[in-house]
Design a protein around this nucleic acid. Structure first.
Lengths: 348, 348
DNA sequence: AATTGGCAATCTCTCCGCCAGAGTGCTAAA
DNA sequence: TTTAGCACTCTGGCGGAGAGATTGCCAATT
């Protein structure tokens, strides 16, 4: 929809209305806008403008004698046309940086930490999604026998990421065979991306003298080693923050949201399809595919770990402080990317 | 407190009262017990017994003209003296086994999965705590350079567990030196427990020709490599289940619980100190140290992965179906231990 | 002595009507 | 085009009334 035909008065009224509603969570009346925001107009005039905005579908009344609240479209116009990112304070920047830098237990812990930071600083729900390893470049692969019938496979990928897979194997595997297999894999596959390996592993390991029993574990292109199906994980922290939000007064709505969060896969899918582009992506209310999310907004951004990319973001009610959240997500994504980058930041 | 002086009548009334209250969440009146449970006594008689139980502090009235509900002590007597574990159905057993067996992405994923199973089957909150690696026996240690200034250390422990640590190092490390260091570590330390290593690493690596810069990373006994501080993680699934429970009608109470869950460390500590013994440990309401947990009960059990032990459990309101939950936790813990045991279960 | 029926008393919960408060839409005036 | 005035509408809180449930106690019964 084109809302370019909105006059400056309409825009200002919308802006003030959205900002005030974000703060108070109460429907905003004409008097508040006229007085508190010093527009130099009487409430009656504001009322007329508000009627126009209502006809355009940007605001609505919960009931006849209440003030107005923004619709999803109203928030959309606010975000697209009126949003001014509110910069982070020094303290906030410091906090984000130091908490990210202080975590060195591997990717999983780092992402948990990141979601925690986002949740705390935003007072909303912070989320982070681990990257797909598809594009990750293999650094090393280890085969470690852990017991008679089981094998621990550790796949290390550039940028310090690693995933471990526990495999069931036929019980009698010779240690020497295993060593041989291991060096073969490392020789022929390191430096390639996992996705590439999956497609070409058959050819690359064709002429080999290895134990065929062992070999077939790695030739299976559906194997979880090269495939990252189900590998993506959604971390989230800050559910308690949402409890105090009036839009989650009915228990069922928050319960639904939590169920979706715990279920993981559906939400991961929708977030990923949304945030294909660069930079911050904001999804508002009904713009969400999932019905359980249609009273929520998501502010998301990608982060990078070498060639591999994942997503972080914030979830909250559509009435969320977008101006602040945009800055938080943007800065956190950048910090995370930095922490995961191959170059050390300050190698002076 | 000794409640051995309770007569069989008192016990039966208490039992029926608790069982009925667990089902309905409504205060139980004398008539319900007399009629529905066919005790062959009139409501008036039951009333007298109930007064006795109230004087003993086992039940209480929410207000003058309501039925009775169990107190924490009441549940305690129920659990200690009257509980009959309700066996799992075939289907439930199958579900638990197969979901545990179907997860082979390493310990973290397995524990997430376990908490999910517990949550689903119990319709309560399922939790799992990763084990301390203190007692874990080192199988292998890998040093993988990931970028100029960083080193990925993978510590593999018996039973297929592995943890990865990302370390900052001085930027110019020779690959050969690294290899040398790696084999040295593997030669001298595999087969020992991490706790043991931490204490003796200084002597064990004393006479060495390795690069001292590298060496000092591993001699630092506070280093996160041998130390598992902060390594323990609490996984939880099923928060949405608690929303429908009437005891969490006030939002703040559930919010507090979630905050504690997300904060991790405090809860981990209390659960660990409680469940030192073998078998199922049940903690009821006020018996919990943490104030936020005092309207909740925990049914917990240990599981083992070789020499390493962790805890799983279920959290819910004190009004929870103990009979069923005991069986669920017990069976799941056993299945998990089995899945993590060194022996393959069915190597026939 | 234990059990039971009867009964007044107590407390909650829900429904209903009432009223104050807030904000609108419309109309007429500036 | 803007504003003041005014009737209208809807919500939310308060209080009282009445139904329902369950108790405690007492006197009667087994």
């Amino acid at each position: 929809m084109a809302f370019d035909n909105l006059g400056p008065r309409e825009l200002r009224v919308l802006q003030n209305l959205v900002m005030h509603y974000i703060q108070t969570a109460d429907p905003v009346g004409s008097r508040v806008i006229a007085n508190r925001y010093r527009m130099g107009l009487s409430p009656a005039t504001i009322r007329n403008t508000m009627q126009d905005l209502e006809e355009l579908g940007l605001v609505r009344q919960p009931h006849t004698s209440a003030g107005r609240i923004p619709t999803d479209s109203g928030y959309r116009v606010f975000v697209d046309l009126l949003l001014r990112p509110e910069p982070l304070t020094e303290a906030e920047q410091k906090k984000i940086k130091s908490l990210i830098a202080g975590t060195n237990r591997g990717l999983d812990a780092l992402l948990t930490q990141t979601s925690k930071i986002l949740g705390e600083i935003s007072s909303q729900l912070g989320i982070s999604i681990s990257p797909r390893f598809e594009e990750g470049v293999l650094t090393r692969i280890d085969l470690i026998p852990v017991s008679e019938g089981r094998l621990l496979v550790i796949v290390a990928v550039k940028s310090g990421l690693a995933q471990t897979i526990l495999m069931e194997v036929e019980s009698d595997i010779d240690v020497d065979e295993l060593r041989q297999m291991e060096s073969l894999l490392n020789e022929r596959l390191t430096g390639l991306s996992l996705g590439h390996i999956r497609k070409t592993v058959n050819e690359r390991l064709a002429d080999t003298s290895c134990s065929p029993r062992l070999l077939k574990l790695f030739l299976d292109t559906d194997s979880e080693i090269w495939n990252d199906q189900g590998e993506e994980k959604l971390h989230f922290t800050g559910v308690d923050k949402l409890f105090s939000q009036p839009e989650f007064a009915e228990r069922s709505r928050l319960a639904e949201l939590v169920r979706v969060l715990e279920e993981q896969s559906g939400l991961i899918e929708t977030i990923k399809t949304k945030s294909i582009g660069e930079g911050i992506v904001i999804t508002i209310g009904r713009e969400n595919q999932m019905t359980e999310m249609q009273s929520c907004s998501i502010v998301a951004s990608k982060y990078q770990a070498g060639k591999v990319t994942g997503t972080i973001g914030i979830i909250g009610p559509t009435r969320m402080p977008y101006s602040k959240l945009v800055s938080i997500v943007e800065y956190t994504a950048r910090s995370l990317t930095e922490a995961l980058s191959d170059e050390k930041k300050d190698n002076g």
